[in-house]
């Protein structure tokens, strides 16, 4: 399939609102038409053409549409907003709110992504080769529904509150994570392969958090349940053994924390609750 390529022409010094860039909006459009699209650069409306060199063409079929964005998009917002199919590839920083409310398709960021990666995501896949900021898969302010489906894979680290208010779907972080992964979580799965700074699963009511690295302490509002030799994340088996905690009791929750035993000798105290 052929790609539509957008290459940033100049440095942008103001917030750039790029919610228009999604396969849903651009598939089947001619480059001339795309160049005429208006976006906000700070408080000015500018044509896409003035920001990007536009090459190639977008496929007519949504699923086959590939959009490649080249350049530092760290001041951009909402690339891939509400997209339902096709592929976006960003070569460079992806900016804030990459793939917000995404419903399907795939976003690949060859670089880091800013905060709110995949916020309110409902379906599709996001892969980030670098690190992601805070609030991965988060809910909009004031609401209690974050990610409801899809997959987010971060090869580097993720910030704090990864998967807050998550209801369903999968987040996998290969590096370490900041505080509060899975805060207020209602369902779905989060797997942090590196270390976590703490407070995993705070206020969670459901769902599963698997921590293969170190977690300083478990919140006091969790109950130690068992030791398990392995657990499943999506279709894969992850080898433990794991300490399994349930909680967050403060919210009457029934979520599960799987914490790798080998990485967390400081949690040995919980073994005294094991029924012999």
């Amino acid at each position: 399939m052929s790609a539509l390529e957008l290459t940033l022409r100049r440095t942008v010094m103001a917030p750039l609102y790029l919610d228009i860039i999604s396969p849903d909006n651009l598939s089947g459009k001619r480059w001339r038409e795309i160049g005429d699209y208006i976006v906000w650069e700070g408080n000015r409306k500018v044509k896409l053409r003035s920001l990007f060199k536009i090459e190639g063409e977008a496929e007519a079929n949504l699923q086959d549409t590939l959009i490649e964005i080249v350049g530092d998009m760290s001041r951009a917002r909402r690339i891939g907003y509400r997209m339902s199919g096709g592929v976006i590839r960003v070569r460079g920083h992806g900016g804030l709110y990459v793939g917000e409310s995404m419903r399907g398709g795939r976003i690949i960021v060859d670089g880091d992504a800013g905060p709110w990666l995949g916020a309110n995501m409902a379906g599709g896949t996001i892969e980030v080769s670098g690190s992601a900021g805070d609030h991965v898969a988060a809910a909009s302010l004031g609401t209690d529904k974050g990610m409801t489906g899809g997959t987010i894979i971060v090869k580097g680290d993720s910030g704090s509150q990864t998967g807050a208010w998550m209801h369903s779907g999968l987040i996998r972080v290969s590096g370490s994570s900041g505080m509060f992964p899975g805060a207020h979580m209602r369902g779905g799965t989060i797997h942090i392969i590196g270390d976590c700074s703490g407070r995993a699963g705070a206020n969670m009511r459901g769902g599963k958090i698997v921590l293969s690295g170190k977690l300083p302490t478990v919140l006091p509002s969790f109950t130690f349940e068992d030791i398990r030799s392995q657990t499943r994340v999506d279709k894969d088996n992850v080898e433990g053994p794991f300490y399994v905690f349930s909680g967050d009791n403060n919210e009457g929750g029934d979520g599960r924390l799987f914490i790798k035993k080998a990485s967390n000798p400081q949690l040995k105290w919980c073994e005294k609750f094991l029924e012999v």
Binding site: P220, S221, F224
Partner: peptide, 22 residues
């Protein structure tokens, strides 16, 4: 602080706190 408030919430609910100190 967060850990301590969590523990207080648990205690207010009447839940047992498994750790010796928070």
């Amino acid at each position: 602080d967060y850990e301590l408030i969590s523990a207080l919430r648990a205690a207010v609910r009447g839940d047992e706190i498994e750790q010796d100190e928070v």
